[in-house]
């Protein structure tokens, strides 16, 4: 139990500090790399929760594939000097972003505080094979089949949309 707590605290510190490093890095390439570290810390947190399948899918999809694409784009556009000019193009964002951020913060605070005073259920024994691929797959294709299909439709639309945008002649 104590070991689990220590691991949780270390992973939490890594996750939070790497998340801060993502937004504070001057160089976009470093920001992407800190995001990779953050995803790893999250994956390890899933492992602590015995969700092995989700943990390694997290590494495979986010840390492995999506971050490579991020790096690709960041290097291709060579964004290091482009951040200031981007700020001028989106003036509304300067006001909208802190406002929406505050809303999110309040939401998190409400969830956290309501959970803080509530009775935490006693930790129970995990069912056989918890967190492995078979039960996750079963849930995904039976109880959560609608969200699953909606997600895939959203991804398909994004894919088609990006191809349409890329193919459009200027």
């Amino acid at each position: 139990m104590i070991a689990e707590l220590v691991i949780f605290i270390i992973l939490g510190i890594v996750a939070v500090s790497s998340a801060f490093a993502v937004i504070l890095s001057k160089n976009p390439v470093y920001a992407v790399l800190f995001l990779v570290i953050n995803f790893f810390a999250l994956a390890m947190l899933y492992l602590v929760l015995s969700a092995q399948f989700v943990a390694f899918i997290q590494i495979l999809v986010y840390a492995g594939a999506i971050m490579v694409l991020f790096l690709f784009v960041v290097m291709l556009l060579n964004l290091t000097g482009a951040i200031e000019s981007l700020q001028d193009k989106l003036p509304a964002q300067r006001w909208l972003a802190p406002a929406l951020g505050m809303v999110l913060l309040v939401e998190i605070a409400v969830v956290f505080l309501s959970g803080f005073f509530a009775q935490v259920p006693e930790a129970s024994e995990l069912p056989e094979g918890f967190g492995t691929s078979a039960p996750v797959g079963m849930l995904l294709f039976s109880r959560y089949v609608l969200p699953f299909e909606v997600t895939s439709a959203v991804l398909l639309i994004a894919m088609v949309g990006s191809i349409v945008l890329a193919k459009r002649r200027p």
Partner: peptide
């Protein structure tokens, strides 16, 4: 999952 990290 692990081999996909080498690309980075």
């Amino acid at each position: 999952a692990i081999t996909s990290i080498a690309v980075i």
